[in-house]
Write a protein that binds this DNA or RNA. Structure first.
Lengths: 134, 134
DNA sequence: TAAGGTACTTACATGAAAGTTAGTGCCCAA
DNA sequence: TTGGGCACTAACTTTCATGTAAGTACCTTA
């Protein structure tokens, strides 16, 4: 499963990128499955979990610490959604105490490559944006 | 035991862009302004409006049509938030019938360059993702 | 005269997302 | 033996984002 780094590096550059052909009419259809997927990956905690996992496999408790403020319920729920979407893999080891590792799938990795620059941008611009409010 | 970000970078060549230095500890702080900004730009309609405007200046009624399913209230609200965040500019012409144009600021344009590949990805992968659900 | 387009605002309603609290079973260290 | 860490699940509640419906003000076309 080869992921082309060049491709993502290029698309992440701050240059005008074209929308896919299917959106050439400029209309974003309402019932479209992409709306659902977009909702999952842009959910409050979804982004943070994907980001955290972009740095490598991590345990439940690691993720709890990293996504500061997340509740156990939301962590479980977010992970389940991402797993169902085929973006995250769960690996449980039958040891005591339990050890469960979460990591990105190829597809999840692909996605995180697009999310990282976005979050980095938000992080860098957040202070300016919030400060400039009337 | 613990996998450092540096180690991971070194071992996996096609790595997505690194996180900003402030996040080097892998923790996404809870009270951080970037959380707010992230919430704005990843909101259900925020993404679509920014995307639509990435193709150039547009009128209120254009945006309504493009972000299929949006209500007038949500359009107004989303535009106001994006304007306050300095991502969108509003230009009203005192003509009858009223004509108001919305466009991206430099910062908004910068952001849209990061959002476009993300939405394109969601659009391309949505069918596979939804179909593969248990 | 009525209907429709333009760009909104306001009040109220709902529903999904998120938070809260508690409980599970197992083990280990103090 | 009390407490904590681990990885969850379930039930209940609250908050907030979003939806619905209607009103505003002006002008044009039928």
């Amino acid at each position: 499963m080869k992921v082309s780094a060049q491709e993502f590096t290029a698309s992440a550059a701050p240059l005008p990128a074209a929308l896919p052909a299917a959106l050439a009419d400029g209309v974003f259809p309402a019932g479209c499955p992409s709306r659902t997927v977009l909702d999952h990956i842009t959910s409050k905690w979804g982004v943070l979990i994907l980001l955290a996992l972009s740095e490598g496999e991590q345990r439940w408790s690691d993720l709890r610490r990293r996504a500061e403020g997340i509740s156990e319920k939301m962590l479980a729920q977010t992970l389940k959604t991402l797993e169902r979407d085929g973006l995250v893999t769960r690996t449980a080891q039958p040891v005591i105490p339990p050890r469960v590792d979460y990591s990105l799938t190829g597809r999840g990795y692909e996605l995180s490559a697009l999310l990282v620059p976005l979050v980095a941008w938000a992080f860098e611009n957040a202070d300016d944006i919030i400060k400039g409010q009337p």
